[in-house]
Design a protein around this nucleic acid. Structure first.
Lengths: 255, 255
DNA sequence: TAGTCGAAGATTGTATACAATGAAATTCAA
DNA sequence: TTGAATTTCATTGTATACAATCTTCGACTA
């Protein structure tokens, strides 16, 4: 509840926090990649926000070379869109893309759950419960950013338990894209807390009830999708484009 | 049967054919990306082959900037491995990674087949048959590279028919990695022709027999995996590393 | 002779400079 | 005043130069 000062104002890249090195060991483009990624995933940078190379370089204290590298990585992750000669922007997934992402997530997460039911040991289950408790706590405190992060970590940890790194990588990408989709298509009302669904999932895994676990995961993802504004007409993306750069300084600061 | 002149000699990057622009409209790093990608997928560049930036730049007539961009894209596709400060090389997937790739392919292709059974129309089926006939022809001619390409196109077209672009993108990556895995773990004997399995698959889709189609796809992928050398001890990758740079000129040509 | 330390060479990582492209603003005409 | 064309500016794309790192070759020592 602290840092969102100007909610009605158009967001700029200044919402990226370059000074907090999310991962200390990171080198080269890694820190800027993570910085932008986190900013997008935690809804500090809304879809459509332009990401100018010079400005980012100044913020992160590196040259455009490194910025471009990070930007292209993000583009491959589909959370940044790069149009040749026209720069990068936070991606604005369409409704169709959103549906495809959820479909693919259901497909992969079903497989993950099935595997996890066989591979999960006591330590894994305890770790999942720890993550879910953290998610509950964040929800109770109204810390939306932490909720997003912990929820993603839960699903990622599940994939890790399942023991398939390829699925894990794909799922990481899908979870990122889901966060972006939620930012775009979230309904006005406050999102329901999904943590108790995670808890039920853990119980089913512990019981070795694969069918129940799969069903719970399906329901979980369906409810998330159903909570979004995916039926409606044109996507908000066009509106954003239309109103882009209204009260927005092109460069955040001119030294 | 024409171009493989020196089979026993260590492959170098000269096997990349830079002059044939696989896609004429390609611009910037796209052509070099496709060039290297095709060379790897068609087994002209075996796993472990070093990919020096300067040499590639000279071959393709661009600066290292563009080469690096292409290389990092390939690294994200997992068909090139980049170790910091130590350069890029054609990736050498481990046995475990190979298993994960096949598992994930089975998961995704099952979903693709299920969807395709509902969405495939007459045109789509005819297109699939055309691709499979081309695959058969290439197999008959002993053109392994075309077989690989056509087989991949078949699975990709299937994903396209299924209508989920996200799954399609993932599958494209998995198909690429599969080609690399086959290059590494292929048994000595000549691979069986998979084209007739593709034909059976098409028939099942046409009949609307989803269960049969899914089963056929499962069998198909299982047979490919079973035809590989995935049980054994240490992967050939280490051997390659050991013998790397034995009779191999560091730079292909020094003008 | 084998092993280790050190220096030279080669290769990658990053920054900067220039070229090309797209966006915006000003001018001119209707 | 509105519209279009041209000029101007900003931003991206590419090449090159320099710095950092790793590898390799050679000399020296035990």
């Amino acid at each position: 509840m602290a840092r969102r000062a100007a909610a009605s104002k158009t967001a700029t890249m200044m919402d990226i926090d370059a000074r907090r090195p999310d991962t200390p060991g990171a080198t080269g483009d890694e820190s800027i990649y993570r910085g932008i990624s986190a900013a997008i995933l935690e809804h500090r940078l809304p879809p459509g926000t332009r990401l100018a190379e010079d400005a980012l370089g100044e913020i992160f204290g590196v040259s455009r070379t490194v910025v471009r590298k990070a930007l292209f990585r993000l583009a491959h992750d589909k959370i940044v869109e790069i149009r040749p000669n026209r720069g990068a922007a936070v991606a604005s997934p369409t409704i169709g893309e959103a549906r495809d992402v959820f479909d693919t997530r259901r497909t992969l997460e079903r497989a993950v759950i099935e595997a996890a039911c066989e591979t999960a040991d006591r330590v894994a289950l305890e770790d999942l419960r720890r993550l879910t408790r953290a998610e509950e706590a964040a929800h109770a405190e109204g810390d939306r950013q932490s909720v997003i992060r912990h929820s993603g970590d839960f699903h990622l940890r599940l994939a890790e338990i399942a023991g398939n790194a390829v699925m894990g990588d794909f799922l990481r990408e899908l979870i990122s894209r889901t966060a972006l989709i939620i930012a775009l298509y979230e309904r006005a009302g406050p999102a329901a807390c999904a943590a108790h669904e995670h808890m039920a999932l853990i119980d089913a895994i512990e019981d070795g009830d694969t069918a129940a676990a799969v069903a719970l995961m399906d329901t979980h993802l369906n409810e998330i999708e159903a909570s979004l504004n995916l039926d409606g007409g044109e996507p908000p993306v066009d509106l954003r484009d239309v109103f882009a750069g209204v009260g927005l300084a092109t460069t955040p600061r001119r030294s």
